[in-house]
Simulated assay, not measured.
Amino acid sequence: MHILIVDDVPENIQVAMNILKEGEHTFSFATRGGEALTIIEREAAQLDLVLLDIMMPDVDGYSVCQSVKENPATSAIPIIFLSAKSNVDALSKCFALGAVDYITKPFHAEELLARVKTHTELYRAKKLLQQSNIELSTKIKFEHRRLSSELEDNQKEMIAMLAGLMESASDETGQHIYRVSEISALLAHYHPALSADDVEVVRHAAPMHDIGKMMVPYEILHKPGRYTEEEFQQMQEHPAHAYKLLGGSGRQLIRAAATIAHEHHEKWNGKGYPRGLQGEEIHIYGRIVALADVFDALSHARSYKDAWSIEKVVAYIEDHNGTQFDPELVNIFVEHLDEFRAITHQ
């Protein structure tokens, strides 16, 4: 145990050291308050106790104690006052400043040894407990991150499985699902209000945008010709079906997928479906996937249509800027068109 002894009388320091050396302690010492504060700041990590006189020149023991306790780096170091003062006011002031004990001079060797042993062992125990708490907290944080990562991986795996099921059950192709995911992530990447975390959420949730089509009758979903009005109404129900399927989840990726599936057919001017949301009433994830889905769908052939040229697709998107699509997203799309075009060729 390392102890700092502070007393303006060197003989008192020597007496205390002679008594305490039986306990295999190491020592620092100071004869002035200012000197003591310098040593405490320098040796804070090694100090286990300060034995502090009250009456000293320049800076008295009260001021030293107050400075030590006000400094977060030294406030935990225990201080025992050693003083010839034995009145109640002095005693009360010492404890009020944060001292752990008070020994009146002249002191008995047994008393000094016993009190020093008690407080140094208590301080060491507190430091060990604090270190154990830090280690436990670190382990808990690591375990939380591990479990969160595992849960997120499980969500991603489940989304991939559902996307695969959707591919087999609907008119969506795996390539379209992949491209919509990458186009959406790129739009999110360039959006000034979205973070890197948002980009990854959009990337992994976007493949679920048409999961509700699994609840649309097969003969309607795969009809080669135009829909009747009744059939089109049934097709328009797939966002609501998706939300019923996914909306009850408390998991981030699944919640995002539910929002995207529910809102990616809404339009900026409020004339979309299923709820007729308008402008920023539509979640940014839904607005992103709405543009990504249309861009990729128009750029590739389907059973009921030929692929459009990239120029025709871009013209369509620009013509529907502010009506079907979010103007800010259209600007991002046009500004980085070469990057989006590259994804459509994958």
Rank of each mutant, 00 (worst) to 15 (best):
D171L: 06
Q175H: 11
M166N: 12
A163K: 02
N154S: 14
A160Y: 00
V180R: 00
Y178L: 10
S168A: 13
V180I: 05
A163S: 15
L165G: 05
M161D: 15
L162S: 00
I177A: 00
N154G: 14
L162T: 01
I177Y: 03
H176T: 01
E182G: 02
V180Y: 02
S181F: 09
L162K: 10
E157K: 15
E182N: 11
G174M: 12
L165T: 11
S181H: 04
E172Y: 11
Y178M: 01
T173W: 05
I159F: 02
D171A: 14
I183A: 07
L162M: 12
I177H: 02
L165C: 05
L165Y: 13
S184F: 04
L162H: 08
V180L: 01
H176P: 06
M161T: 14
L165K: 04
T173Q: 10
Q175E: 08
I177D: 05
M158P: 03
G174F: 06
S181I: 04
H176Y: 03
R179C: 12
L162D: 04
R179G: 09
V180K: 09
G174R: 07
E182H: 02
S184G: 02
S181V: 00
V180S: 02
N154Y: 15
M166D: 15
L165M: 12
E182I: 06
S181A: 00
A163M: 07
I177F: 05
A160Q: 14
S184Y: 00
A160H: 10
E157N: 15
S184E: 07
K156C: 05
I183C: 01
